Amino acid sequence: MASQFKVVLIFTMAVSSFLSSSVAQQTCSSYTFSNNKAFNSCTELPHLGASLYYTLAPSSDTINVAFKAPQSSDGWVAWGLNPKSTKMVGSQAIVAFFHSNGSMIAYPTQLDSYAPSMAPEDLSFPVSDMAAEYVKNEMIIYATLKLPGGSTKFNHVWQEGSSVANDVPQAHSTSGGNIESLGTIDFQ
């Protein structure tokens, strides 16, 4: 009797795990962008409710990305690669928010300390086609990146903050998902 219970329990856990991962994939892959952009791959990131969509162009070592995260119209979001470390410092990021003129903007910035300026700054690798939009309480960043060193595997970071002052994103929270929003990704 006890062994039957264990078999049922293991089976139930396996089915539950499969269904959970299927629902997560379905949520990510079923999203339709307002500009009809399409991406070959997507992943639900483990913190801040964020998702990353991408299409690799191996012949040119470029990646087209869309980073999407829940956010109020007063806040900001950012996503980036860190070619040298697993932490925030050293990341090459793209930040997006509502500019004081009312338009959504996206620009590159370097996170060179734990109190970066968040000012527009060239990255150590080419980035183009940057754009941002605000749809259904989510901010979305679009960009094309020339992958550093021709690699496809990177450390990446993502973030969100609740305020922007004088067109400068203000410091994000230093607890919970905000300090856990980092990982590795292989664009293959």
Rank of each mutant, 00 (worst) to 15 (best):
T144Q: 11
P108C: 04
E180H: 10
S17W: 05
L145K: 01
V15F: 03
P58M: 03
G80M: 07
Y53V: 05
N137T: 05
M104E: 09
G149R: 01
V127A: 06
A171T: 11
M1G: 12
K68G: 05
A119Y: 07
L19M: 12
A131N: 12
E121I: 06
Y107F: 15
Q25D: 09
S117C: 07
F187A: 01
A38M: 11
T109W: 06
V77Y: 01
Q26R: 08
I140P: 00
N101E: 14
M13Q: 11
E138V: 00
M130D: 00
F98I: 09
I10G: 03
P46M: 01
Q170R: 14
I141A: 07
D74M: 11
K37I: 08
Y142L: 13
A93R: 04
F39P: 06
A50M: 13
P126S: 12
M118R: 08
V164Q: 03
A96Q: 00
P46W: 00
K37N: 13
A57E: 11
L52C: 11
Y54T: 15
E160I: 09
Q159G: 08
D186W: 10
S124D: 11
S100D: 12
K37V: 13
A24T: 13
I179S: 11
P58Y: 02
T55W: 01
E44L: 15
S113P: 10
F18V: 15
